[in-house]
Computed example of a mutant assay.
Amino acid sequence: MQNSDRSLGRGLLYRMYQRRLQRGLGPGSVPRHVAMIIDGNRRWAKQLGYDTAAHGHRAGAAKMREFLEWCDDLGIRVVTLYLLSSDNLSNRAPDELADLIEIIAELAEELSHYRDWRVQHVGSDAGLPEPLVAALDAAEHRTADKRGLHVNLAVGYGGRTEITDAMRAIVAAHHAEGRSLEDLAERLTPDLIGEHLYTGGQPDPDLVIRTSGEQRLSDFMLWQSAHSEFYFVEALGPDLRKVDFLRALRDYAKRHRRFGG
């Protein structure tokens, strides 16, 4: 068999396997909210011999739009993409950070014109350059009335900072109402804190996925993921395949969620 024939055969088997995985997902087995830690873009670029990490970040951004399409087509309602942590603002080389900021701004612009998706920035503006903040704000404003897939872009995001900001907002509102410290202690509940997170009003992620084989949260959605299921994929971010995602959903569907039990 010639190489082209073998490639065609492998492609056919791959598509058949992909369809079988997708048919196996029942209507109640698909999570409402999937959170994705896209990791491995720099390693991908280095392995392919590129001279800068920007090639990997661009490939990762393209994969994230494809990933969102998979989610939308399967009926998932909310997706959160971890694109830039608050720690990245200080631990990345200036040239790489500048490229990454430009890529994220372009992605936000692109997603805000795609399908019926609603784009929301979840994170802090602190430390972000003004053009990126403007791009995120514009995407959020442009899609505010859309009712399709809800896409959270976690940019300038840190889980501990998010919880701190929520507590500050609660205390500030309580103080403005002239209430006592004792009253605040009585009113303070997990539900109240959840309402003041960047994702307030949204369901917590049912499934958190991370690419590149790393098995850690990296300060991502610490509060919201308290009862989430986790799935770690060996593939580097740009190499993620739909089959990998469907396997994650199949694994999720088989789990018995105990919610702390």
Rank of each mutant, 00 (worst) to 15 (best):
P31K: 03
P31A: 01
H33V: 02
M36G: 06
I37V: 14
I37G: 06
I37P: 05
I38Y: 13
D39F: 14
D39S: 12
N41S: 04
N41E: 10
R42D: 01
R43E: 04
A45L: 12
K46I: 13
K46V: 13
K46P: 09
Q47S: 13
Q47E: 12
Q47T: 09
Q47R: 08
G49K: 00
G49V: 01
G49A: 11
G49I: 02
Y50A: 00
Y50W: 00
D51V: 11
D51H: 09
T52Y: 01
A53C: 08
A53S: 12
G56C: 02
H57M: 03
H57F: 09
G60M: 03
K63F: 13
R65E: 14
R65A: 13
E66C: 04
E66L: 10
E66M: 10
E66G: 11
F67N: 08
E69T: 11
E69R: 15
E69Y: 09
E69H: 14
C71N: 10
D73T: 13
L74E: 12
G75S: 01
G75Y: 09
G75W: 12
V79H: 03
T80F: 15
L83A: 14
L83F: 09
S85R: 04
S86D: 05
S86L: 05
D87N: 10
L89D: 02
S90Y: 06
N91I: 11
A93L: 10
D95Y: 05
L97S: 01
A98Y: 05
A98G: 06
D99V: 00
A105K: 02
A105N: 08
E106K: 15
A108H: 12
Y114H: 15
Y114V: 12
D116S: 14
D116M: 10
D116P: 12
W117E: 08
W117M: 06
W117C: 02
R118G: 05
Q120C: 08
H121M: 05
V122C: 14
V122E: 03
S124H: 02
D125V: 13
G127M: 15
P129L: 07
P129A: 04
P131D: 06
L132N: 03
V133G: 07
V133S: 05
A134Q: 14
A134C: 09
L136E: 02
A138D: 08
A139D: 10
H141Q: 07
H141D: 07
R142W: 10
R142K: 10
A144W: 04
D145K: 06
K146Q: 12
K146N: 09
K146D: 08
